[in-house]
Design a protein around this nucleic acid. Sequence first.
DNA 1: CCTGGTTTGTACAACGTTGTAGTCAACGTT
DNA 2: AACGTTGACTACAACGTTGTACAAACCAGG
Lengths: 335, 335
Amino acid sequence: MRHRLKDVAERAGVSVKTVSNVVNGYAHVRPDTRARVEEAIAALNYRPNLSARNLRKGRTGVIALAVPELDIPYFAELARHVVTAAAELGWTVLIDQTGGAREQERVVASGITDHLIDGLIFSPLALTADDLVNLDGTPMVLLGERVDHGPADHVVIDNVAAAREITAHLIGLGRRRVAAIGSQRTPEGASARLRLDGYRAALEEAGLGYDEALVAPAPVWHRADGAVAMRHLLDSGVRPDAVFCFNDTLALGALRALYEAGLRVPEDVAVAGFDGIEDGRFSVPTLTTIAPDKERIARLAVELLANRIDGDRSAPARELSAPYRLEPRESTLGR
Amino acid sequence: MRHRLKDVAERAGVSVKTVSNVVNGYAHVRPDTRARVEEAIAALNYRPNLSARNLRKGRTGVIALAVPELDIPYFAELARHVVTAAAELGWTVLIDQTGGAREQERVVASGITDHLIDGLIFSPLALTADDLVNLDGTPMVLLGERVDHGPADHVVIDNVAAAREITAHLIGLGRRRVAAIGSQRTPEGASARLRLDGYRAALEEAGLGYDEALVAPAPVWHRADGAVAMRHLLDSGVRPDAVFCFNDTLALGALRALYEAGLRVPEDVAVAGFDGIEDGRFSVPTLTTIAPDKERIARLAVELLANRIDGDRSAPARELSAPYRLEPRESTLGR
DNA sequence: CCTGGTTTGTACAACGTTGTAGTCAACGTT
DNA sequence: AACGTTGACTACAACGTTGTACAAACCAGG
């Protein structure tokens, strides 16, 4: 049985609005009145109807987080932090899975969730800036760099610098044939492009040539794709002595393929990933990676969104950068 | 700029209700009227206000999924399937993280999400049947077996039989000192209790004694806890030749600890897990596990909830069982 | 050409909440 | 004693939608 303000009001012998005032913490309510109302609220187990409140206020208290897939650990970990950060500001998070499909992403971006959400935190894979023009004004914060300088707020990490740093780490270990796994030819694969740029920059800085044959594409970045790409590299006869995988799941797949091929990591081939997922701390061997500060990313995104929702919606788009850390582990250092 | 039924009505030269009828597919609208209205809807990019619709209809089209932690792979994978299954029935899923804390779980169960959701799919860790009496009628489906025969619908898998089967698999390989990792003494740890029962049953069936010293507790079931428990077993000098871990993340931690101790898997110690998470297909070695049919679990849960929401709310609680499969891999079979 | 039923459309109220405007009493100031 | 100010509360309307009740236009059959 659900009760309404009216039921509480009748029980407490006051007007509906007074109950509303108590619920919302309005100051000018006599203590004894407040007590009576609170007693009635407790007795009836009253809970406000959010639909009605939203209708009246034009706010829902819900934000959406759209990610490609929840069972990619990076996104799951990110989601956890977003939910936590949002909860601190009194928001509930509704999670959308886009599957990374452009059409689905466009539907989400154009507000499929309708008036149910106050704002959107969006980690797009396939979406381009063009797809974003059609927004009907729902505030949005983008994560990652796939949509370069679109019309919305961004939280990014410096993919180029991070990729360069981890590639330099491999080179610093004395490796000379450093492969890369995860390149993408599609115009949407901006993260892949940036990480490839960083990889290339590090090679050139070290005076090593860029060799197309050492770069293996991966249309999707799952474990299985990493394993396939690694096998492909080994079969092609190029014999790398190190691999930089553009994310951690690719790297875990690559580790698996190397194990199956009877190669030792890092003695024969050093392996590095990107994302800093929890798995990498327990894999055999543990995985060297670039660990973006996910908590910070989530917090910045939520704060940007809050500013946009509560503040000036026509203010120019902001771009904030989150820090990352190189975490060297067994897959490059050995035990 | 957001438009309302009224705006569309004015543009099409009809009443608000007629637009509403078009939007809701009401049959008796003349084709030319319908066309005019649809033109206006398209021109204004009209989207219904869900808060208002919900207020009027008493339905929100949103269900919640409450899980302990999203970055435990099992729950992330489950969440993905629930989101997919719900989408097919036109529902949006709101994901709640309870952290497995009893207080938080109670808050969620008692309807923190208020009138925003039509129903709840709940995978509780710490909650007991007593905590569930206070529901204000929001339909709920429980996953797992932590709350035995509570007042709500359940989707379960046969934990005892599954645990017995995988333990028997270890024994069938000739192992005689089969340890277990993940027991819990708290009254809430029902899954742990059931899996321990299955483990014990398999031992007795094989004529092997149950040895308390071979059972390592793990208050939480993360990778790190599995590693700690495994180290503890090794240090205690009991020297198992196989380990059944009560979930896969514990098992991955155990694999890691065995690797650090210089022991070979499965030659020295065979390892088995429970949950069938994706990681287990790519770990070194790959992980033998019990794989519950998560897609089926999600689908059954969504269907049970749908029946409860649309149908008779006072019907007796139903309990459905989902199948599982033993998946033997390298961690017990070798390569 | 009337009758009775169906089709197509409209007006109004209601869902539960909160913002605005207002009432009335108590208070302090001049 | 008359005044404005403040505190405590209430009545009413509105948020955008849809169910109910009804009116008008249309159709078929006699």
